[in-house]
Design a protein around this nucleic acid. Structure first.
Length: 306
DNA sequence: CATTACCTGCAA
DNA sequence: TTGCAGGTAATG
């Protein structure tokens, strides 16, 4: 599920609905491994009687700042969802943790695949979490120049750089594919090879894709829910993600699915021109010396002004 | 860099 | 039955 837009949507909902709420106790806990750096007892000690004074986000971490100075840091990984409700459904085998609140409501953590985690952090833990991530792509500090600085020293493909939380915070498989499509860049393009114009397009694409996804409350493929238990809407607006064998909305060429950086990757082979590797270049030069056109017949124009 | 592990459920 | 899924950490 959750990439930056989904976690940000949950953050906004919980900021509204949990402001100054007080935890009472642990109503339900199965799958104790969800607690990454504490025990059930430690969690109870941290929350009992504590008030949520602020709900924040860093990268894909949702942060609940308590009046005691402790911070609950949630990571939803692939299938987690975190929401507030006043009526608990009697049976849901995927609820991993339920915390009761002072006003007969509950904070529910649901997670089919059990990858999600909860950490109880002090000041030092928060600092460590902060410094473990690259810049927030929607912050004012994230400029095209900063993106250039991130890309310049890296020879690996764009997709792996954009997925790396140490480089840029919050992007995941969906929004990387969508941003690269917007910027007309192939996911295997070496990061250090981008011209200023392409970096500008990528910077704009990242921000545009994330902002519009947040406006639409995130993308629900299966498990993701907002902080009030609703589905997101952004899944209806994908240009390439999950759209293999369908036409590219920009040029009508058929969208393909490939594996890049060990992840399913969706792209338009006409808009997003593949980088020509040395191997391919040699093979093309040797076998097709007198044929000026690319073997794939695609446009070789790497950039187009505007 | 690639592979494997962590988990469950669903579709091919 | 197999492969694949929004993420990440730990291994060669």
């Amino acid at each position: 599920m959750p990439e930056l837009p989904e976690v940000e949507t949950v953050r906004r909902d919980l900021a509204t609905h949990l402001h100054q709420s007080r935890f009472i106790h642990i109503e339900h806990l199965d799958w104790p491994r969800l607690l990454e750096n504490t025990t059930a007892e430690g969690l109870f000690t941290a929350i009992a009687g504590s008030t949520i004074v602020r709900v924040g986000r860093r990268a894909k971490w949702l942060l609940m700042f308590l009046n005691t100075g402790v911070c609950l840091a949630w990571h939803l990984r692939m299938s987690g969802s975190l929401f507030v409700t006043s009526d608990l459904q009697p049976s849901d085998p995927h609820r991993r943790l339920i915390l009761s609140l002072n006003d007969d409501r509950y904070l529910v953590f649901r997670d089919v695949r059990k990858f999600g985690r909860l950490r109880v952090l002090n000041e030092d833990g928060l600092k460590a979490l902060e410094s473990a991530h690259g810049p927030e792509p929607l912050s004012p500090e994230f400029t095209a120049d900063q993106l250039a600085t991130i890309l310049r020293p890296r020879s690996t493909g764009l997709k792996s750089v954009l997925l790396n939380q140490h480089c840029i915070a919050g992007l995941g498989n969906i929004y990387v594919d969508e941003a690269l499509w917007h910027a007309r860049l192939h996911p295997r393009t070496p990061a250090c090879s981008l011209e200023a114009d392409a970096i500008g397009r990528l910077h704009l694409a990242i921000q545009t894709v994330l902002r519009s996804a947040i406006e639409r409350q995130g993308s629900t493929l299966r498990d993701y829910r907002t902080g009030t238990g609703q589905q997101g809407n952004n899944q209806h607006y994908f240009n390439v993600y999950g759209r293999q064998n369908k036409p590219c909305p920009r040029c009508q060429a058929t969208v393909v699915r490939d594996v890049v950086a060990q992840r399913g990757t969706h792209l338009c082979p006409r808009c997003q021109v593949a980088p020509v590797t040395e191997k391919k270049r040699a093979s093309v030069a040797g076998l097709k010396k007198d044929h000026p056109a690319d073997a794939r017949g695609g446009r070789r124009v790497p950039e187009r002004g505007g």
